[in-house]
Amino acid sequence: MGETHRSHPRDFIGSLEKGFRVLLSFERKHSKLTLSDVARLTGYTPAAARRLLLTLQELDYLHSDGKYFWVAPRTLLLARPYLMSRPAPEMAQPVLDKLADGTRQSASLGVLLDQEVLIIARSTGRRTLSTGLGIGSRLPVFCSAMGRAVLSTFPPNEVMRHLAATPLDPWTPKTVRGLASAAAEVEHCRKFGWAECDEELEMGVRSIALPIKSSSDKTIAAISLSVRAERMTMGEFRQAHLGAVQQARDALRAIVSFD
């Protein structure tokens, strides 16, 4: 966030922002990082990255073997206040559990966070997937079904703004390429009401998603269902389970507030 967008720039503590940015550089694709990796991912100088890493290690938010750094269990405490104080994850869980049990697939609820979708609730059916997704996982908005679903209710110029600010790096050989193609996938959801991701995030995994509007009529969330590609084609997937996802979406919209 640029300083021009901060309501109280004089009260802003830049070092705190930098510390959080270092922590957020660790993810599924970057579970262990060197000092040089962190400097590259954050844009900080090696000297600044080193001080931040060592401070976080001293506070027990990071562990290290002298070369690589990785997140420590203490980082879970940062998510606990949200999970304990906000009703959305707790209220959504029974709905996701019912959807997962009924379809025997994996269901997720995500919210838009900058240029990513953050999973805040998830239920895995009896047929588990290999994605390793869980609460707190982040998905790229441009090639995930949930990202496309959320963006589909935004004005076209805002969609392009989000996509233009997103690194369009391919996750698999099937990941959509280019800004125009990414925008076309969002328009598909705008037209039909559902979005899809066909092995674009992980080979062998297909997903469909629907947007969920908040009480203020703003779309910031989406619900998705995922299936192993060998079990059914995308067309068979939609035919078999789209109705169940729509019912779950309607149930969530009636009981959960995302404002």
Rank of each mutant, 00 (worst) to 15 (best):
L78E: 08
I208Q: 10
A88W: 06
T75Q: 06
R50G: 04
G102T: 04
S7L: 15
D97N: 10
L225P: 02
H162L: 11
F154C: 00
S214R: 13
R104T: 10
V38C: 10
S207W: 01
L41E: 04
S7T: 12
A244E: 12
S123K: 12
A100W: 05
R6F: 08
S15G: 05
D114V: 05
K213R: 14
K67S: 01
A229I: 06
L109Q: 08
L139G: 01
M160I: 12
P46C: 03
V205Y: 02
P140A: 12
P140F: 11
T219F: 04
T153S: 14
S181I: 00
V245W: 01
P94G: 03
P155F: 01
H241D: 13
P87G: 10
Q247G: 01
F237T: 04
E202R: 13
R206C: 07
T153P: 00
T45H: 13
A72E: 08
T166Q: 12
D169C: 07
S7A: 14
D60M: 08
F69G: 03
A180P: 00
G19T: 06
P46H: 06
S257H: 13
F12E: 11
R127K: 14
V141N: 04
R148Y: 05
R161W: 07
S85D: 10
I135F: 08
L113P: 00
M91S: 08
D259Y: 03
S36L: 09
L77Y: 12
L252Y: 06
P94V: 07
Q105D: 09
R138I: 06
M160R: 15
V71C: 06
H63P: 00
S214N: 15
T103Q: 06
A164R: 15
F192S: 12
I223E: 02
C143P: 02
S257M: 09
L16I: 15
S224V: 04
L133S: 03
I13P: 01
G136P: 08
G14Q: 15
V227W: 01
F20D: 04
D101Q: 13
R190C: 08
Y44D: 11
R126Y: 02
G14K: 14
G147R: 10
